[in-house]
Design a protein around this nucleic acid. Structure first.
Length: 564
RNA sequence: UGCUCCGUGGUGUAAUUGGCAACACGUCUGACUCUGGAUCAGAAAAGUUCAGGUUCGAGCCCUGACGGAGCAACCA
């Protein structure tokens, strides 16, 4: 009888979703839900943005609303068109769409200017002629109240005249600003007559030379929300202290019951990486990574190149949730999310990264058999493929040991292993290079009765190895990636530069890897599981002549643990 | 020595309008397997930062400590 409560168990919703549900039931904004994703076009999107995107678009989808894409382009000196296309591409790749609602804060420069003029006329804003350092000093400190500017009570007509002339280009950058007239002794620094307009003479990527004054974030964001009819303006925790200003400005602007509401949630932090756009840019500029889409980067283009799927990122974001706690999430959860997704989707193939030649002495030298092998045991509808087998194959170097330790299940002198999808082989002898001591070739015999599916194929052996026909294998370069940093929280160490924690072994390039021939025509971003090794995807650098694979993530290796 | 926010197993999140703490990752163990890595089963692990208070009963409410984060850019 305890059954009923179990199935009634509702999936819990985040505090933000609860706010939305409450707002709908309270009839706020006529029950409309309208969100926006507002990136500043000054860098590439990273997985932290994915968390915001999934929320903004996800809430709109779930509650029958809309989500706008809005570029927050209020600072022409920091922003570049280059980033706009990449941002749009990444959002689409993640699986979301803003339809025709692609907006720019710069679309509202005219309306924003009018609103500023209105505030001046109502004595709620004034032009301040003081330099930045003086204004800053007068603001006081978080624990001491600020002091009024001598221009605070300037007559509106005078401010108005000056404001127009600022926009004509008459004054130098930094010589004058427009300030909202709120409360210089507010305990909230953002309410101490915040600067809302400054003079910038650099050309804007969309409005060109039209404007000489540009609104600050606080004066543009909430107002843009208002102009677009946004109901829920979701942003990260550091904007919490801006909310009173957001609300104050909306109060001055609104003419009906409609008003947007700002709600803050915790930003995503991941172990062993950094999320700051500025630092990511440094890594790119200093050549510490190959670019924004280096597969070690937490950027969406980097993750894409690494082999991550949009589904895995969405599932990851779903698992970590939205709260107000400043958390640092474990990358292993992200890795789990890709493995889980790729396990269902990725065809299994054989790839030998560190080849060792095995010669099967009793197998006819000229003979080639086509072994039919399941593409994905998790999903038989993915069918089978033919893999050629002959008397010379490659196996992984660490799948053979001359003097095996206890519990070693792989190939060693006198032992048997199964070659997956083919035969059981027994190691008879091996040849060592006298000079280097390296094992160069292993000689085995096979048991013809043990062919997979054959009469003796159910014979038990301890180990099963992946292999590749030496005569049919295709050569490839394989790039093995590890965490970019070897410290859990590289950016969070006081007095320690994050670069100090760069992991020197974060990229290992392997050449001369041997892959099964079906991989010859693989296209960039095609994803596979190299059996017993991990998930790999084809890199953009790959060509039919020189295949290049990236390791997305390894499989969990318990033998590696036994060894330790 | 101001304001705002936060404090639940190793990590991240849950806990119906207060009813003796759940899920996932990770860790460990076992089973099974033609992936030692798939898969399956199980275990250990917090008594909810601390101290008071209200209550029959508090992780949830109140007070106070302690700890952490953010805020003093003409950045967003």
């Amino acid at each position: 009888m305890a059954e009923e409560s179990k199935e009634e168990q509702k999936p819990s919703v985040s505090f933000i979703e609860q706010f939305i549900i409450d707002d709908i039931s309270d009839g706020k904004n006529n029950g409309r839900i309208h969100t926006r994703f507002p990136p500043e076009p000054n860098g590439y999107l990273h997985i932290g943005h994915a968390k915001a995107i999934c929320l903004d678009f996800g809430m709109a989808q779930k509650y029958g609303g809309k989500c706008n894409l809005r570029f927050d382009d209020t600072n022409p000196v920091k922003e570049e068109v280059e980033y706009i296309d990449s941002i749009k591409e990444d959002i689409h790749w993640l699986g979301f769409d803003w339809e025709e609602r692609e907006y720019y804060a710069s679309d509202y420069f005219g309306k924003l200017f009018e609103f500023a003029v209105d505030l001046i006329k109502r004595s709620l804003a004034y032009v301040d002629d003081q330099p930045a350092d003086v204004i800053s000093a007068q603001k006081g400190t978080p624990s001491q109240p600020g002091q009024s500017s001598p221009f605070r009570n300037r007559p509106p007509a005078e401010s108005l005249d000056l404001f127009y002339r600022m926009n004509e280009g008459e004054f130098a950058e930094g010589s004058r600003v427009l300030r909202a007239r709120i409360d210089m002794s507010s305990p909230n620094m953002h309410m101490r007559d915040p600067i809302i307009y400054r003079i910038i003479k650099a050309p804007h990527h969309r409005t060109g030379e039209n404007w000489k004054v540009y609104p600050m974030y606080d004066f543009a964001h909430g107002q843009s929300d208002y102009f677009e009819g946004i109901t829920h303006s979701l942003c990260t925790l550091e904007f919490e202290v801006h909310r009173p200003l957001y609300d104050w400005l909306i109060d001055q602007l609104k003419t009906s019951d409609y008003r947007p509401r700002q709600i803050e949630f915790n930003r995503l932090n991941l172990t062993y990486t950094i999320m700051s756009k500025r630092k990511l840019l440094e890594l790119v500029r200093e050549g510490r990574v190959s670019g924004w889409d280096d597969p070690r980067m937490p950027t969406l283009c980097g993750l894409r190149r690494r082999g991550y799927t949009p589904e895995s990122i969405r599932n990851f974001v779903d698992m970590i949730g939205y709260t107000k706690v400043e958390a640092i999430n474990d990358v292993s959860l992200l890795e789990y999310a890709v493995r889980e997704d790729l396990n269902k989707k990725a065809p299994r193939v054989f790839g030998v990264l560190d080849p060792l030649k095995v010669i099967i002495t009793n197998y006819p030298a000229g003979k080639v058999e086509e072994m039919e092998i399941l593409n994905n045991p998790e999903d038989e509808s993915m069918g089978t493929r033919k893999v050629p087998f002959c008397n010379e194959i490659y196996i992984e170097k660490d799948d053979f040991m001359e003097n095996p330790p206890h519990k070693y299940f792989r190939l060693a002198p006198g032992t048997e292993v199964r070659l997956k999808g083919a035969y059981i082989i027994k190691c008879e002898s091996f040849r060592k290079n006298e000079m280097t001591g390296m094992i160069e070739e292993v000689f085995c015999t096979y048991d013809p009765a043990t062919r997979s599916g054959g009469e003796a194929s159910d014979r038990k052996v301890k180990g099963t190895l992946h292999w590749v026909s030496a005569r049919h294998a295709v050569d490839a370069e394989v790039r093995l990636y590890d965490r970019l940093f070897d410290h859990e929280d590289p950016a969070g160490q006081k007095d320690e530069d994050y670069r100090k924690f760069l992991n020197p072994g974060s990229l290992k390039v392997l050449s001369g890897c041997m892959l099964e021939p079906s991989l010859r025509n693989a296209e960039p971003l095609d994803k596979f599981q190299f059996q017993r090794l991990g998930y790999f995807c084809v890199d953009y650098d790959s060509t039919p002549e020189q295949l290049v694979f990236n390791r997305t993530v390894s499989l969990k290796d318990t033998w590696a643990k036994i060894r330790k």
